[in-house]
């Protein structure tokens, strides 16, 4: 085997591994990373990859990659509610979500306790976003569990998790209004940037994460940190929405391909 890419030569950003990016901490190096990623990616979307049915025991599952960010989502349910105390409304399905990060997902190895503040917040965000599209009224007195696991984190884990969850829910056959897709955008060096990676995210600019119902053209998730002039915000959000639509297009292709395969396996 070749040498593992953990300790790469300092200027090989053509295929930035998360470790490389997290090690570049001086302002100069971050700028350098930015400039090279600008020139390489042409402020477009990173490479997308989706795969359905990666966890055989789950009712629905999917893998989703955005550049070096890689997440798995698994859906269990609809099934009987396990903990009756959690049931809020008798006429709707209960949606639960749990976000977890693997120890090896980041460049620096960290061991996080389960249920820290960040993962609780992201779990909540994903749950609320997915609730917006699941037809919960059709499945009263039942529960749907969504589990997302981050294998590699290189910025935009939130978006990747939502996209993976959408695929997994579709794989599980959970009735949905529309597909939800998500993408982030930022603003650095007077350029709006789509789909930020870790280095771009940690350079200090704003990070706008948007989730949309693709066909209905409605925003269901919108988060931003840092400050941004109002007219620029409009542009950045528009860019993120464009990104979401591109992801939606890709997700539709995967679902269509998957359905075709299922059809051919059934032999009709």
């Amino acid at each position: 085997m070749g040498p593992p890419p953990t300790l790469p030569t300092s200027h090989s950003f053509s295929s930035p591994s998360p470790k490389t990016l997290q090690e570049t901490k001086t302002p100069f190096e971050i700028r350098f990373a930015l400039l090279s990623s600008l020139s390489i990616q042409n402020h477009g979307m990173r490479h997308l990859k989706g795969e359905i049915g990666v966890v055989s025991k789950a009712d629905g599952s999917a893998l989703f990659e955005m550049g070096n960010t890689r997440v798995i989502a698994a859906v269990y349910g609809p099934k009987e509610i396990q903990n009756k105390g959690q049931q809020m409304n008798n006429n709707e399905a209960l949606v639960r979500c749990e976000y977890s990060m693997a120890n090896f997902s980041t460049g620096d190895r960290t061991r996080r306790p389960k249920g820290d503040r960040r993962s609780t917040e992201i779990s909540l965000v994903i749950r609320q976003t997915m609730e917006a599209c699941i037809l919960t009224k059709l499945m009263p007195r039942s529960q749907i569990d969504i589990f997302v696991q981050v294998l590699q984190a290189d910025g935009g884990t939130r978006s990747a998790c939502i996209n993976a969850a959408t695929l997994a829910l579709a794989d599980a056959g959970v009735p949905m209004r529309d597909i939800i897709t998500s993408c982030s955008a930022g603003y650095l060096c007077t350029t709006p940037l789509l789909d930020l990676n870790y280095a771009e995210d940690s350079a200090g600019g704003p990070d706008v994460t948007v989730g949309i119902l693709a066909k209905m053209d409605k925003v269901t998730l919108l988060q931003m940190d840092a400050k941004l002039p109002l007219d620029t915000f409009e542009n950045v959000m528009q860019l993120a929405i464009e990104g979401c639509k591109a992801v939606a297009q890709y997700i539709r292709e995967i679902l269509l391909e998957n359905t075709k395969q299922l059809e051919s396996r059934r032999g009709s």
Binding site: I72, R96, S100, F147
Partner: peptide, 19 residues
């Protein structure tokens, strides 16, 4: 050596269940 059971593997590993 650290082993983690992801909740994706089984719903009972969710929360503190897999610890």
């Amino acid at each position: 050596i650290f082993v983690d059971c992801s909740p994706t593997a089984a719903a009972i590993y969710g929360g503190k269940g897999g610890e």
